[in-house]
């Protein structure tokens, strides 16, 4: 599979502070790749390095087969920064005309693409209005339109739906899925894990500037299972024994929720409960959401 993004030991230091450390990522073409992590983990640092806004301290990266920093390849890249800002004295259409000229689009392509992307993100009605009159959500949509302007092969989106209402989020998801169907690659930075789970083919988790896990969201879920136990005689001693064999997510009343690495650990867990004097009434395992994997991975690191 040809790669849209490949990084090798990509590292960024801000003085003595670490932005990203030894990032090795491979993102195949035609994928939606979710990049997840808590605030300050280094998500935006990596995206900014890939978009050419900041320079890596060490390591290498290739974008659509070209080395990082290649100007020509940027014609095939769209980028939506977090909190999209723009020249507010322009109208929405004028802003896109300016961005189109930065993409060195000819007049014909410009007049075709600008109405198309404005329509796609739902800001056609405000095309002639000054950007300063736009709401936060409309600006985000306009930023999306700018990123989509060159019909990019690779799209970097940094929190693209943070300013949007649920309807707007759904529209953006549909746009992204539509782009994937056309073979486009999307690198998605988001806090909205349920959204990422819905559309991403692969995800990576970053913490403290390092990638701590990556893979298919479904497969990652298989490695992290949640088991809910309903039992009587739940004493402190029994809780300690459960804790020794699995990580407790929550406990209250007669219910305990624990995380186990895989299905094979479930019989042993039941045995611990029974041997510890607990009367087990119900044991159920659930599919783990990306959110629970995210929380679990972050707790593991603490």
């Amino acid at each position: 599979m040809s790669l849209a993004i490949q990084t090798d030991d990509l590292t960024k230091h801000y003085g003595s502070q670490v932005g990203c450390r030894q990032i090795d990522l491979s993102v195949g073409r035609g994928q939606i790749f979710g990049f997840l992590g808590p605030n300050g983990a280094g998500k935006s640092t990596l995206v900014k390095m890939l978009a050419g806004l900041i320079k890596p301290t060490s390591g290498t990266a290739a974008i659509l087969g070209e080395r990082l920093g290649n100007i020509g390849v940027r014609r095939k890249i769209g980028y939506l920064p977090e909190n999209f800002s723009c020249h507010e004295w322009l109208t929405g259409r004028q802003l896109l005309e300016f961005h189109a000229s930065l993409y060195k689009m000819d007049r014909g392509t410009r007049s075709r693409r600008i109405p198309l992307v404005m329509d796609l993100v739902g800001v056609s009605g405000a095309a002639g209005k000054k950007v300063k009159t736009y709401s936060k959500g409309m600006r985000q949509r306009l930023g999306m339109a700018s990123a989509l302007l060159p019909d990019p092969d690779l799209l970097f989106l940094d929190e693209p739906t943070s300013a949007l209402d649920p309807l707007g989020r759904r529209e953006v998801r549909e746009i992204l899925v539509g782009l994937r169907e056309r073979g486009k690659t999307i690198f998605l930075n988001s806090h909205l894990l349920s959204e990422v789970e819905m559309i991403c083919d692969r995800v990576a988790f970053i913490r403290g500037g390092r990638i701590i896990a990556q893979g298919d969201p479904g497969e990652m879920g298989a490695d992290h299972m949640v088991v809910e136990l309903q039992l009587q005689n739940l004493t402190g001693g029994l809780l300690d024994k459960i804790k020794a064999s699995a990580r407790i997510i929550s406990s209250g009343g007669n219910t305990v929720r624990v995380a186990v690495a895989n299905k094979e650990e479930i019989p042993a867990l039941a045995e611990v409960v029974v041997r510890g004097g607990g009367r087990l009434y119900r044991l159920a395992h659930e599919k783990v959401s990306l959110e629970e994997i995210f929380i679990s991975l972050n707790k593991e690191g603490d």
Binding site: C86, H87, L102, Y103
Partner: peptide, 14 residues
Amino acid sequence: ESGVIQAVIPKPVS
């Protein structure tokens, strides 16, 4: 400071 330049630099201009 406003972040406007973040939408300009990633474009194909040096």
